[in-house]
């Protein structure tokens, strides 16, 4: 079994939900990232999504766009992101690590070279925002052959047929984009999410991570109860952005937010 499947199975046994933080590799500088990943694990992260900076992040709101810009200003790249993943693995061999980004850096590297490099870096999953199932056959096969889970997005307007398609081609988990919009948007409706999760769960046995509108401990608790985990990105990166002149403080605030979410999610389950 993959690290991701193991992790979700283990959490299910414990009656807990996955806390999945997202940060962009190299934001605000390359030295910040790996220590931050370890600190997030200590604060209760079950899985980490590591963003690969891209010049044209079409599905992201302003917060993650600026994270990419800061990282690219330090000449970050997919290759350097993979190197960070490898560095993280030297001392953490258990926390699943998922790369999330856009397709063109992978195209530039070549699918096979990328899949080999991701395997060497012990990446557990790859989510490319602009690679829907209909175009993903080659890339998904190369990843699966190397034990890496191709992770796909589901949206509020994805119908049952579409969900079954993701179930067939995806593995690890499915990422439910909880609202029509970009990352960090503010118009999340939990009743809509609850209704949609019923349809999703009826059409796939894969775990569901919910993201795109998770801001605080309250939304983390509410949404995690509806699926199998929550992804939090913009809210964490906002802490970096607000403390660019005091990065230790940024790190502390990220840890505090994740700790509060962890606590709210776990208590939520016991109630």
């Amino acid at each position: 079994m993959s690290r991701l499947a193991d992790k979700f199975a283990q959490l299910a046994d414990q009656g807990r939900k996955a806390l999945i933080p997202f940060i962009t590799a190299g934001d605000p500088n390359p030295d910040f990232t790996v220590p931050m990943l370890h600190a997030m694990v200590k604060a209760g992260a079950d899985i980490i999504e590591l963003g690969v900076p891209f010049s044209d992040p079409m599905a992201d709101g302003p917060v993650i766009q600026r994270a990419s810009e800061r990282a690219l200003a330090h000449k970050m790249s997919l290759r350097k992101t993979l190197a960070m993943a490898m560095a993280f693995r030297r001392t953490d061999t258990t926390t699943p690590l998922v790369l999330m980004g856009y397709l063109n850096p992978i195209e530039a590297m070549g699918y096979a070279d990328f899949a080999n490099a991701a395997q060497r870096a012990e990446i557990d999953g790859v989510l490319s925002v602009d690679l829907p199932p209909e175009e993903s056959e080659d890339c998904a096969r190369l990843l699966k052959e190397r034990g890496i889970d191709p992770i796909f997005l589901l949206a509020p307007n994805s119908g049952a047929e579409r969900i079954r398609k993701m179930d067939a081609i995806g593995s690890g988990y499915l990422y439910y984009v909880s609202l029509k919009g970009v990352t960090g948007a503010g118009h999340l409706d939990t009743a809509d999410v609850a209704a949609k999760l019923k349809t999703i769960k009826a059409n796939t046995r894969l775990p569901i991570g919910i993201g795109f509108g998770v801001k605080d401990a309250g939304t983390a608790k509410t949404l995690s109860a509806l699926g199998d985990g929550v992804v939090i990105g913009s809210a964490l990166i906002s802490k970096i952005e607000a403390n660019l002149d005091d990065l230790p403080r940024a790190k502390t605030e990220i840890i505090e937010l994740l700790t509060a979410m962890r606590s709210a999610m776990d208590n939520g389950e016991r109630l």
């Binding site: 829907p132 209909e134 949206a155």
Partner: peptide, 12 residues
């Protein structure tokens, strides 16, 4: 060519 977009844009 092809259809390389985020999932939310597939239905429209």
């Amino acid at each position: 060519g092809g259809t390389f977009v985020a999932e939310t844009l597939i239905p429209p």
